[in-house]
């Protein structure tokens, strides 16, 4: 039982197997492989390890801490069979078309409102496109259509540009209204 053969990497049986994932605060999570695979990083690890994959000793994730990984897992559980997200662009303005979120996703972000940027970092590291893009969209919601003062307050931005730099920006970008 020590080493499991992972030859049939895409086989459904393997997806039902459990794998142990250890986060950087030494918490162990027992996760179904099918769920863990939503993360491309973990999926690559599983594939790279191949024959030598040891399901019981687990996969270490040095860059993610427990509480955040718990939240990410919740997302993975919901999106384990979800299709790849499609990024669409408006042909004229080249603006990204915003994703429409399901009820569950809205609720998810509402629940973890104060952890959005931890989620973005984790999703980026774990390569979960859906979570990464959606979180970034949620963060962009706070910039969209707001006044400079609102943005500054919201993100706690300090004004670290000098007057000359501002003048330069105003010169090169005549549309800069602020």
């Amino acid at each position: 039982m020590a080493t499991e053969s992972a030859n049939g990497v895409s086989s459904p049986e393997l997806n039902e197997r459990d794998v142990v994932i250890t986060t950087n605060d030494n918490r162990n999570f027992t996760v179904k492989i099918g769920v863990a695979r939503v993360s491309k990083t973990i999926n690559n690890m599983i594939q790279d390890l191949g024959e030598s994959l040891d399901l019981s000793s687990g996969i270490p994730l040095p860059n993610v801490d427990g509480p955040i990984f718990e939240k990410v897992l919740e997302w993975c559980e919901e999106h384990k069979n979800a299709p790849e997200i499609k990024v669409e662009q408006d042909p004229h303005t080249r603006e990204r078309k915003w994703f429409t979120m399901t009820e569950w996703e809205e609720e998810y972000f509402r629940k973890f409102l104060s952890h959005l940027w931890d989620l973005a970092m984790a999703a980026n590291y774990l390569e979960i496109p859906s979570l990464y893009y959606y979180t970034c969209q949620k963060l962009a919601e706070r910039i969209k259509g707001r006044t400079p003062e609102q943005i500054r307050e919201m993100f706690g931005i300090e004004d670290d540009l000098t007057e000359e730099e501002k003048a330069e920006i105003r010169r090169t970008n005549v549309w800069c209204t602020y």
Partner: peptide, 19 residues
């Protein structure tokens, strides 16, 4: 990645926020 979601008008504002 976050900025890809907003319009150019919003980027015009953001560019003068900080370094």
């Amino acid at each position: 990645r976050i900025f890809t979601n907003v319009s150019r008008d919003d980027l015009d504002l953001c560019t003068r926020m900080c370094h």
